[in-house]
């Protein structure tokens, strides 16, 4: 971003000093979870291909998902999914032109955080209950 005559002038710090706020933190969180979900989209295709290939490859994939490491990944995936889902809905509401007052921005922001945690817990609760029952 050099403008004419400005060559040689130092650039003042930006990300290095700017205070992390709910606004910017949720924005970058939406990005990071989006990238994580992209990786899981690849895994989803692997899962489908394994299922189409027969019971043997499918059970191999299922076993990896069921392992401790697989379960930790799935927990991260679940949280990323709900964070991106809730954050995405927040963005869609903004796209209608609503919710731009600072108070709404912060209320919806914290709502996204709380909802993501609750929905992740709920999902795992149901999943474990289904597995046991």
């Amino acid at each position: 971003m050099s403008s004419p005559g400005a060559r040689g002038r130092p650039l003042s710090p930006n990300i290095q000093i700017y205070r992390p706020q709910l606004t910017s933190v949720l924005s970058i969180a939406n990005r990071i979870t989006g990238v994580i979900l992209s990786a899981f989209a690849v895994l989803m295709v692997v899962w489908l291909i394994a299922a189409a290939s027969g019971p043997q490859p499918f059970s191999t994939v299922q076993r990896s998902i069921g392992s401790l490491f697989g379960q930790i990944l799935m927990l991260g995936f679940t949280f990323s999914f709900f964070m991106h889902l809730c954050g995405g809905i927040r963005h869609l509401i903004w796209d209608t032109g609503h919710g731009f007052e600072l108070r709404s921005i912060y209320a919806s922001g914290w709502a996204v955080v709380v909802a993501s945690i609750l929905l992740t817990a709920l999902t795992w609760g149901v999943s474990i209950w289904m597995g046991v029952g």
Partner: peptide, 14 residues
């Protein structure tokens, strides 16, 4: 933030 600096706290706003 993120401005070319003329001197101290004076950014180039061109």
């Amino acid at each position: 933030s993120n401005m070319r600096i003329v001197k101290d706290l004076v950014p180039d706003l061109t």
